[in-house]
Amino acid sequence: MRKWFTGLLAALALASGSSTAQAQPTIKMMIPANPGGGWDQTGRNLAQALISAKQAVAVQFENRGGAGGTIGLAQFVNAAKGDATAMMIGGMVMVGAIYLENSPVNLSMVTPLARLTGEYEIIVVPSNSPHKTMADLVKAFKANPGSVSWGGGSAGGTDHILAGLIAKANGVEGNKVNYVPFKGGGEAIAAIVGGHVTAGVSGIGEFAEQIKGGRMRALAVSSPTKIDGFPTLKEQGIDVELANWRGVFGAPGISAAERDGLIKNLRAATESASWKETLKKLGWSPIYLAGDPYKKFIDEDTKRVAGIIDSLGIKNTK
């Protein structure tokens, strides 16, 4: 199957004209997740953008899912060492998984190239909920934290972390958050729409159709400014901002020149029409950040995520 994709993409590249002199021959891309999710979409759309911007002739994929991306990360650290044509997709979920599971490999062992996208979160309630605004929900939450159940994705993931940040901003202890994790979007949507949990937290795209269809009411988004007219948390007096970011990493042990070359390729790819189309289609925000500032961002995010996971009281001890 992998070979098949390479063949397809090589054919696409041929169709779109010959490669330029500085183009990469073939990029090997590690996607540390199973096909279908956000990282997979990021990797496959990025490949198309790299090819259409003539930054690569072909892209070879490897999907290695599991354990929040740390299985793919471990393989990338071991097998891609010094390979200047290797890239790996990753993001905030991986930062959380590394800390939560005391993973022996971490993001300081790979070369940060660029942060590509951010997906903001949204907080919803069932449409027949008594909570009309974020303030209503927060009031109930502060009065009795346990009585408000938050439904979202996996424990320690982005949705859980946002619930933790909201608790912190309202002076509620993290381990009092009654967070109910669901597998995949579908189960969570059913539990929220059916009124089995008080509120729901997820990426905006996940709930968009339910909100449009009138089965959920949006209370707040976690972005710096309004999205689709939904008010931000900040506007409603909760000083929290959170984007589920996704980015690209290079192999361990590549030279500074090789790193800068890859960043140049990525920069060109993100400026292509194909990439802009992807962002629009999937509702991702372009929060491009490359090289050293990206590395610094990862260090800060690691600290922030670790702090919240500690306060939620869910870390594995060894």
Binding site: G65, G66, A67, T70, I71, A74, L100, E101, S103, S154, A155, G156, V180, P181, K183, I314, N316
Partner: peptide
């Protein structure tokens, strides 16, 4: 799945799922 803690995986990451 409810707490994110690993059980009986004995440090083998492939068993985490």
């Amino acid at each position: 799945s409810q707490t994110g803690k690993s059980r009986f995986a004995f440090g083998v990451p492939e068993l985490l799922d």
